[in-house]
Every structure is written in structure tokens, then in C-alpha cells.
Design a protein around this nucleic acid. Sequence first.
DNA 1: TCTCTTGTTGACATCGTTGTCATTCTGAGA
DNA 2: TCTCAGAATGACAACGATGTCAACAAGAGA
Lengths: 370, 370
Amino acid sequence: MPFGGTAFVRNLKLMERITIHDVARLAGVSIKTVSRVVNDEPNVSQRTRERVERAVRQLNYRPNPAARQLGGSRSFLLGLFYDNPSASYIINVQNGVLAESRARGFDLVLHPCNYTDRQLVNEFLSAAAQLRLDGLILTPPLTDNGSLVEALAERGIPFVSISPAEATPRAPLCVKTNDRSVCAAMTQCLLAMGHRRIAFLAGHPDHAAIRHRELGYLDALSAAGIAVDRELIVQGYNDYDSGFDGTNRLLALEDPPTAVFAANDDMAAGAMTAVHEAGLSVPSQISIAGFDDVPLAAHVWPTLTTIRQPIEKMASKATELLLERLQGDTLDNQSVVIDSELVFRNSTLRPGQRRDNKSGLPPGKGKRYG
Amino acid sequence: MPFGGTAFVRNLKLMERITIHDVARLAGVSIKTVSRVVNDEPNVSQRTRERVERAVRQLNYRPNPAARQLGGSRSFLLGLFYDNPSASYIINVQNGVLAESRARGFDLVLHPCNYTDRQLVNEFLSAAAQLRLDGLILTPPLTDNGSLVEALAERGIPFVSISPAEATPRAPLCVKTNDRSVCAAMTQCLLAMGHRRIAFLAGHPDHAAIRHRELGYLDALSAAGIAVDRELIVQGYNDYDSGFDGTNRLLALEDPPTAVFAANDDMAAGAMTAVHEAGLSVPSQISIAGFDDVPLAAHVWPTLTTIRQPIEKMASKATELLLERLQGDTLDNQSVVIDSELVFRNSTLRPGQRRDNKSGLPPGKGKRYG
DNA sequence: TCTCTTGTTGACATCGTTGTCATTCTGAGA
DNA sequence: TCTCAGAATGACAACGATGTCAACAAGAGA
């Protein structure tokens, strides 16, 4: 049994309800002074501060969140709002947010919602007011809902956006990744492998940040002096089915592509199935690349060349920005970019080349994984 | 733009802070009476009750959770504890719990943790005490940590287990699925398809409920009068890699299996890759079945025959049991079973049969999906 | 030495509920 | 009519923090 044995009976202190009064008594000061120390307020002498801190440690004191909310103006509650069908995306965001917020004594309230709901804005305001949320964290596609952002800004409700379409003055805090340039890099690599007809499965039109991925693809083509063939750009909707359907349309073209670059991994998985069902082989006849590096990407056959988006890190950073903003020691506008990276696996290969070197790695480029 | 337009300016009432005093004033009663009505306490006359309820509706009053926690003995907070690598599993659990808890006015605190941590029990007790959690929800493999369950039971902390190994008297509340019988059913179907050498990729030994799946497999074999070949049962660890490795070992046998039944979908995905890499085809040469019906299952090629576990429903039910227990109107022991169902897709087929009917459906059995 | 400023500390009201207990009603039974 | 149990109601003190403001201490400047 790998567990802690029966030592759990000890440390009953954990169960006692230590209040600010206990700490004050032990340190020989008033409760207000304890409050000052705990909240890092100024005007406490060094000696007193240390005495209080010792007492806090000794009693393992943690302020009661409910009392803090009730008495004070802060709630120590953050709201995470999402409407995103990708479980791994959400879990990563949650983990990133939790890591940062918990360390700073904030708790998290989950708020799954429906971004097409007419009542969305009211739902937000109501939740923010009822629960006294100190700040909100928005994920795509909620980040791109103009009236929502406007309503929050107007009421001065602090919030941070993860991967918004644009950093607007109304949404001053955001964290993004280098969608455009990293997609250009992936496209360049496909070009370097010798592909000339590279298709692109575009993302959902409501999911604005994803459009940057298409722009990166176009950047690389134009930099390479390759004319854009509109037939090779297919509208998708971020899901497996649209990747499947779109790829079938591509395969039916008179001059089909030798590579398919999908704006996310789910669509890439759909593309893979379509290619398989057409009796073609990946990567020796058609190369496929995705975006996100969801767990699926390493678990399909062949494993998927993709782009790893550092979602958890982005979520941590977003939370950090939000908390700094709440403490007031942040400049008004702050937009942080955290880079994604290329991950080469087995779904890409020089066109027509047999899978002998067993990897779609372009010579001397990128790293291997999984 | 599919959003709600600019109507968000209305309903400013949402932002006002309506307290119990406002309601009391409007209804012409004391705050205590309002409290009684809101909490469904006895000894309020029908007329008064209606008057108060009308005032509550009229003002859109919702009790302040912080004040409730502080003043009363309940916190209206549930803790969800998990250490499970499957994102889709966790999201489903979260959604199920949220649906039920939110409707009843409870909030949820997430607690990802590490089940091998020595401090696990202390972490639990500390979280339960610090946050004043009213009840805990445990998911596998935490459900099977004896000292943890013991510690919670000893302190009278209410909790409910989802898919525990066994319903013990110490863990009186639990929700399970019919792992054993549904796995027997799947095995029977594989037998009905004509398979005689069916391998089983067993689950992680720490994840006790998964052992029931193996028992179901054995049940079906013995019911069919087929001797168990221990070579065909391979120990896995619930992850893709162990499914891959285990299947490679199976393929290297002198008399390899014609079907592989994995105790979860991740291992099944590993099995699929191993079979592909060996140059064999699924399902025409080897059939594969999984368990869980994670999104991946419908997104690999060929799509995976599996067993759909109603995780969200199980989580809702578990939350319901817990909340009833908190209200005191539940019997002491309660164990609910919610059935899983077979999902036939394209990874199973009669051995040696060509994929002409395009489905692994056994004649007249089960349903098709995805 | 006295005043004034600034830094340090504590007393006390407050937040919005619930819990306790006293009080007031009500209707049945004597 | 009177009594009295039990139902209905309200007054008021918690709960455990923060915010406000007054008091006090210490050091600077006159």
C-alpha cells in the first residue's frame, strides 16, 4: 500500500478552526495588526511583523475566506468561463489557472456556458455580482464576443483574455501565442520537404484567433513566391467531422494536395481518416499537420506532426496578470505572447518519399517528441 | 453577430446587492422569517411563506454565500478531488457534478491531487477544514485509498465515491457502472463473431474498479466453455504506451489472438498502433475493442468499438446522493448502478472476414454510433 | 522643551446571514 | 371563560474577517 499508513490521526490541529483571534493572542497584538501582516499592508514595524508571522506559522493559520468576503471588499474568487468542446484544452487551462491562483490564496469558480446564448451577457454580470467575483478569465470564443467585453469593461469588472482575436483597449489584459508566425514556420517546413500543393483546413469563423493561423499559412506561401490556390483552402469548424468532410473535398480535386495543414488537431484527425478511407497512405502519399498537440495527436496512427500550444503556461500567465491587476501594481495595458513550438512526428514526409527514415523531420530542423 | 446585441444595459438590478433586509422590508416580516422561508424550515404559516416568496422573486434575491458560510454551519461548498490523467473523464465528471450542485445552490471547489503523495490524507483533511467543505466527491483511484476513506469516515466528513472498488460500510455512498456484466457482454459479442483467441489488456492494478472488467471477460469465456489462456491476459497501466507494448507482446506469441479487448480506450489506441505497425489490418485481421468511449474512440481509424460509460450521469447521481445525505433525508447506505452500453464501430469484425459490410456489428445486436 | 508630523497600534462598527431564545399568537380542551 | 401546548414570529448575538478612525509613540524641527 503506497499510502500514508495510519499517521493521519496526528496533526489534529488541521481540523481545529484557528481564527485571527488565536493568532493575535499568541503574538500579543490586536487582530487588526494580524490582519495587516497577513494582507501585506504597510505601517507594521519589522519586529511586530516577525512576531505575527511566527504565530501564523505556528498555528498554521489561514484566513477564513467567507469572513474575508463578507467584511472586506474582495472575494478572493476568480471565475473561469468557457465554452470549448475540447476537454484537454479546458483541463490545461484549469490546471494553469489553479496553479497560480491557489498559490495566491484565490479560489476558482467554474462557469461552463453557451456562447450562442442570448442571455450570455446577463449570465456573466449576474454571476460576477452574485458570487462577488474579483476577476474573470475568458477563453475563446468568449473572448471575441464584443458585447460581452464591452459590458465587462463598462462596469469595470477586471478580466483577462486567453487567445483573443485582438488586444483591444476594452480588453487590456491578454495572453496569446504566436499563431501566425508558428503556422508560417510549419508551412515553410512543409515547403522545405518539397510540398508545393499544401491545403489548409481553416478554423471556425467564430473562433477569431484561429484566423491568424490561416494568415501564417498565407505568409509562408507568399514568401516562397507560391500563388495561393483558393481551392486548397477549405472552411472547417474545428471538429473532426469538418476535417473529414473538407479533406474528402480536397481529395476529389483534379489536382489534389500532397499535404494538408489543419488549423487544429481534431480536424487533422478527420483528415487522417479521410485519407485512410480513400485508400491513400499517410505520410507516404499525403502529409498531414495539425495544431494544439492534444493527447490524441500522439495516439493516432501515424502519430501527428503538430504545433504544441503551451496552454497551461498561458493560463498561468493570464492569471498572474489578472492578480497583479487586482493588486493594482500593473500598467493598464498588458499583452503577453508565449510561443508555441513545432512538433514533428510521423504524419509528414517529403512527397512521394517512402517512409524509410521513419520520421517526417525536415533535415536539421525542429525536435522530435512522443 | 450571433450575440445578444446591446440589451445588456438593461436589468441593472442584477448588479444591485439585494440583502435579506430588503426582502424582509418588502414582505413586512423579520429577516429571520425570510431566512426560514429561504431555507425551507418549518413553522412558517402558508400566508407568510407566500408573501416572502413573492418578495424574493420580485427582488431577485439570492442569499450571500459568504454570509451563509460565516453565520451558519454549512458552507454550500463541495470539493471534487481527482488524480486521473484522462481529461475527458474529468471534464465529464465536472459537468455532471456542476449540473446537479449548481441547481441546488452549491458551489464546487476543484482539487487535483497526487494519489501517491504521502501527505494525501492531511491534504484532504486540511482542505476540508480550511474551506469548510460540506461534502467531498472522490473519483478513482482516490476512492480506493483505504486510509483516506478511513480518515474521512472517522471524522464524519460526508463523501461520495464514484466507481470505487467495493461499497464498504466505511464508504456508504457510491455510484458505479456495470463493469463486470457489460464486459462479459462485449466478450460474448466477440465470441459470437467467431473469435476464439481473445486477448485482454488489463487495467492498472491501483485502479481497482477496472479489475471488474477483467472478471467480466473471464465470466464470458467460462460461460462459453473456453479455457482461459493466461498468455492472452496482459497487464497494462491504463495508458497508451502500455497498450502498445502489451499488444506487441501478444502479436509475438506463437498463436496470436484474433481480437484484443482493452480495459480502456487509451490502451485500445495503443493496441491499434501496434497492430498497424506490425503491418496487420484492423479489423480484418485483428479486432480491437476498448472501454469508456472517450472522444478519441470515434476519431481514430478505424473507429473503435467500445463501451460507453455514462460518466456525466454517474457524477450527477453521485452529487445528488451526497446532497440528500447532507439534508439528512437519505438512508445510511446507498449504492447506485448506472449501466454502460456497448458501442459497435469499425474496429471489430468476424475473424478473417473482409470489411465488406462495413461494420463490426454482430447480427441483430447492439446499436451503431458515430 | 514643545510642537508637529509620521509611523504604529488598537477599539469598534460592519458585512449578511444563521442559531438561540424569548415572545406572541392560535385553537383545542377543561 | 380560562389554560396551555404548540405554532409562528422576531430580537439579538454570533460568525471571522476588513475598514475607519482615534490614540499613542517616536523622531524632526523650532
